[in-house]
């Protein structure tokens, strides 16, 4: 795919390329953000807001 060899991070028996490590870190950040961040509130009176309230 790309030109040149990727750089690796070595940690004991663990060996991972920098791009894979970045993706793994990003996944953890996105997962944590999805747990913590709240969805914006619906505008009162919208169909979605009514549906969520009635459910």
């Amino acid at each position: 795919m790309g030109s040149g060899l990727p750089h690796y991070v070595q940690w004991g028996p663990v060996s991972i390329t920098i791009p894979n490590l970045v993706v793994l870190g990003l996944m953890i950040v996105v997962f944590a953000a999805a747990l913590v961040l709240r969805l914006p509130e619906e505008k009162p009176g919208s169909d979605h807001a009514r549906g969520a309230r009635d459910a």
Binding site: A34, A52, R53
Partner: peptide, 11 residues
């Protein structure tokens, strides 16, 4: 057309 309130989450 409607989903439970608890699904209002990015998760």
């Amino acid at each position: 057309e409607e989903l439970p309130e608890y699904t209002r989450s990015f998760v």
